[in-house]
Structure formats: structure tokens, C-alpha cells
């Protein structure tokens, strides 16, 4: 329970940062696996608790993205009930309506 509360707090904190206009790198879009691997490598260079760094490099936004309205809800890394991004390089509490550049389906 304590763990869940901590995740809720962090999720709310991230939401506040994004709502306040945190500038993240939504471009360039990841078009292939080489680019995906490069971005993962950059994320691995961050400290595990560098939330801002993950948000910026990942290109997080607090709304669906693009013409296809891509969002965490459909992403392979999203755990629906925990509201959690299970990609080891991110490992962040998220909302289903958010999106980042590491989205994959």
C-alpha cells in the first residue's frame, strides 16, 4: 500500500510538471529499432531517480499524440491496473492518456 501511495504521489507530481509546461523532446519520432535502441542507451545514462531527465528524453506529453491519438493506454509497456510504464529504462507511474516517444503497440 505504501508503495502504491508513493507511486500515486509521484504520478501527481509528474502530471503537475507536465501541466506546468515542462519542455520535453517529442521530436524526432522513433521510426525504427536503431533509433529506439539509441534512445534507450541515452536513458540508461540517467540516474534511476532522474525523473525530469526521463520525461525530457522520453518526450512525455500529458495527452494523446499524433493523428492516431497514440497514448499509454494501448502501449505494450503500460500496466493498466498499476498505471505504470514497465519499460525498465523508464519505470514510471503514468496516466493512460499520456504518451512518449518510446510508445509501441
Amino acid at each position: 500500500m505504501q508503495h502504491e501511495r508513493e507511486e500515486d504521489v509521484l504520478r501527481a507530481d509528474i502530471a503537475a510538471r507536465l501541466a506546468a509546461g515542462l519542455q520535453t523532446q517529442t521530436a524526432p519520432l522513433i521510426e525504427n529499432d536503431r533509433q529506439f535502441a539509441e534512445l534507450l542507451a541515452s536513458l540508461r545514462g540517467l540516474r534511476a531517480d532522474d525523473v525530469d531527465g526521463k520525461l525530457k528524453l522520453g518526450g512525455f506529453v500529458d495527452h494523446p499524440f499524433g493523428g492516431e491519438q497514440m497514448r499509454c493506454q494501448e502501449c505494450m509497456y503500460y500496466l493498466v491496473h498499476r498505471k505504470w510504464c514497465d519499460l525498465p529504462e523508464l519505470a514510471l507511474p503514468v496516466e493512460p492518456s499520456w504518451w512518449c516517444r518510446l510508445w509501441r503497440i
Partner: peptide, 8 residues
């Protein structure tokens, strides 16, 4: 590694 194009 699953090969994807724009996440698919």
C-alpha cells in the same frame, strides 16, 4: 528484439 515501424 521485436522489429517495429513507428511502434508497430
Amino acid at each position: 528484439k521485436t522489429q517495429t515501424v513507428m511502434g508497430v
